[in-house]
Nucleic acid binder design. Structure first.
Length: 548
RNA sequence: GCGCCCGUAGCUCAGGUGGAUAGAGCAGCAGCCUUCUAAGCUGUUGGUCGGAGGUUCGAAUCCUCCCGGGCGCACCA
């Protein structure tokens, strides 16, 4: 709603007259829980009190005295409590938001705070050594949600998946698969230490023998393992791609570790780090002085045996993101990688990049519970519950919503029974149902929601308290999106949607739309609420069904 | 031993750059279907915000210590 912007702008000016400089976007302007505290309230005076060395109430009084707002926006301003400034909007002001929502439609809630900044969001990035598990699913939902939030706030976003197709994990995959091939033709063979024991490699070995013929197993070991490496990576990549596609996640770029070697990026990166003076030799190894940027200890780039550690290709890869023109590189990583953050951030600074170029969002582990008991292992993957098992059982919408409804850095219990429930207890159904109900009104009225216009409709008849509440909530949506994008926290959006859905259900239950004197105005309200529910759900990659 | 994340109602979790009486959902209890979906709504019970100090006019929020849970601390990736 433009009221938010107008009030923020006016507060910025008023603060300037008191000698304080604040950016309009940083001013807290919230809808108080208690309606007696107005439609919008700011704690600006409280936050300025310290720096101005005055009492909060005095600051608030002076702020209000110098505040100049556009005519007709506000009917009353109060200073209350310890120094809050409460704004009571003019009656007609509230309804103006509805016209704005209908005009913007699917774009309502978008902003341009990002001003086209190029941002790279890397997520999932699972090794191509086995099926994706639920932890990857949480990372996928969160990474995709963060990417969408950044798009909605005007950033140019690239969704990226990094494939470790060159490391020792791949060697283990190759040797594990080769062992399964040998076992399949009746020869004794052991899965190598630290190899992959999941049943999927037994299935794959059988498929390979069918396709390539049983003589495949007679290849010399070296060639057999080489072929197994290719086949294994290709097949696991294909399965992961398919899982992600069905989960509704689409990447713009798939980046292969092997290309880092092929394109000579390692040497360039090493040369850069050397030239900037952050490397040194000791004990026959080449070290990076990450302690210069707050890391616990320096890190080895090249081992004394002449081979590189994993760190160098990773640095080269992130250096390459910078070369591609990204202002920010956000990695969504599992919490077990947190030891990695310090050294990578240090490496980025050693390359001379701004401290905020590299950012990591950690995703804590997921526990899956069904029937009150933890589901731990999947026979097929040999370790955790697979993402595919999960979304096939609960549906993609429920799985994505559940992954998004909690902060990423909190451990999370995924209740499969709750996700499958088709009652109000299940938040995703609850929100989708609110959307379906709004749609139902138009279905019965035999009208397209898109055909509803606010002009010519007298919105002043929307006088019920529940209607004022709904309009305020609708007006708050762009701010919620902006804040969620700033903090990279999609759960703010699910929380908002649940609140909006609750108000929508309550209103729907208490008042009728069709056949009432207020029909035209209420159709406008229903269409606006429906838009916001749909926009919020779509932003998170969740469908907004018209009927359920 | 060192580092990071977490500890809020019976359960799952918001709130965390200090601000008005700590919120929601579920579960519990009491009600509501000739109506555009009861896949819903209304009311209600329930809290020493892990503990102890500290900073502040004001602390769930910031600082210190302690307790509990998770995860990391390689010339592994």
């Amino acid at each position: 709603m433009k009221a938010h912007d107008a009030i923020r702008a006016a507060l910025t000016e008023a603060a300037a007259r008191l000698g304080a400089s604040v950016a309009a976007s940083t001013i807290e302007l919230e809808q108080p829980r208690d309606p007696a505290h107005g439609d919008l309230a700011t704690n600006l005076a409280l936050t300025l009190a310290k720096s101005l060395k005055q009492k909060p109430r005095a600051v608030a009084d002076r702020l209000v005295a110098t505040l100049t707002l556009p005519q007709g926006l506000v009917r009353k301003i109060e200073v209350a409590g310890p120094g809050f400034v409460n704004f009571f909007l003019a009656e007609a002001q509230l309804a103006t938001v509805l016209a704005g929502v209908l005009a913007a439609g699917g774009n309502y809630g978008k902003g341009d705070a990002g001003r086209g900044t190029k941002v790279n969001v890397e997520f999932v990035s699972a090794n191509p050594t086995g099926p994706l598990h639920v932890g990857h699913g949480r990372g996928a939902a969160l990474g995709d949600g963060i990417a969408s939030l950044l798009e909605w706030t005007g950033h140019a976003v690239t969704r990226e998946f990094y494939v470790n197709d060159a490391g020792t994990q791949i060697d283990k995959l190759a040797r594990s698969l080769w062992a399964r091939v040998q076992q399949a033709v009746g020869r004794p063979a052991d899965i190598p230490e630290g190899g992959y024991h999941g049943e999927y490699l037994i299935e794959l070995a059988a498929a390979v023998l069918v396709r390539e013929g049983r003589s495949f197993a007679d290849l010399p070991q070296e060639e057999g393992e080489r072929r197994c490496r290719e086949i294994g990576v290709r097949s696991q990549r294909a399965e992961q791609d398919e899982d992600l596609r069905e989960f509704g996640v689409k990447f713009d770029v798939t980046f292969f570790e092997s290309s880092v070697y092929r394109d000579g990026l390692l040497d360039q990166t090493l040369a850069d780090l050397r030239a900037r003076g952050y490397t040194y030799e000791r004990d026959g190894a080449l070290w990076l002085r990450t302690t210069a940027f707050g890391d616990d200890k320096d890190r080895v780039l090249r081992k004394s045996d002449g081979t590189y550690t994993y760190l160098l290709p990773d640095i080269a890869y992130h250096r390459q993101k910078h070369e591609r023109g990204f202002a920010r590189a956000i990695d969504v990583l599992g919490a077990d990688h947190h030891g990695y953050i310090g050294r990578m951030r240090a490496a980025m600074q050693a390359l001379g990049y701004p401290a905020d170029f590299y950012h990591v969002e950690l995703v804590q582990l997921v526990r899956v519970v069904r029937g009150g008991e933890e589901v731990r292992f999947s026979k097929r993957s040999g370790e955790f519950v697979t993402l595919r098992d999960l979304f096939q059982e609960t549906g993609v919408d429920a799985a994505r919503y559940f992954f998004l409804m909690r902060r990423g850095d909190a451990q999370f219990v995924f209740d499969v029974d709750l996700a499958k429930s088709q009652k109000e207890e299940n938040p995703v159904y609850y929100v989708q149902m609110a959307h379906a109900r709004m749609s139902g009104i138009f279905r019965v009225a035999a009208r397209e929601p898109a055909s509803v216009r606010a002009d010519g409709v007298d919105l002043a008849v929307l006088v019920e308290p529940e209607e004022a509440d709904l309009m305020k909530e609708v007006a708050a949506f762009p701010g919620v999106v902006a804040r969620a994008a700033e903090t990279l926290e999609p759960h703010r959006v699910t929380g908002y949607l649940e609140g909006l859905a609750r108000r929508a259900h309550g209103w729907y239950h208490k008042y009728r739309v069709l056949g009432e004197p207020e029909e035209a105005a209420r159709l406008v309200l229903a269409a606006a609420v429906r838009h916001v529910l749909a926009n919020g759900l779509n932003l998170l990659g969740i469908s907004a069904p018209d009927r359920m």
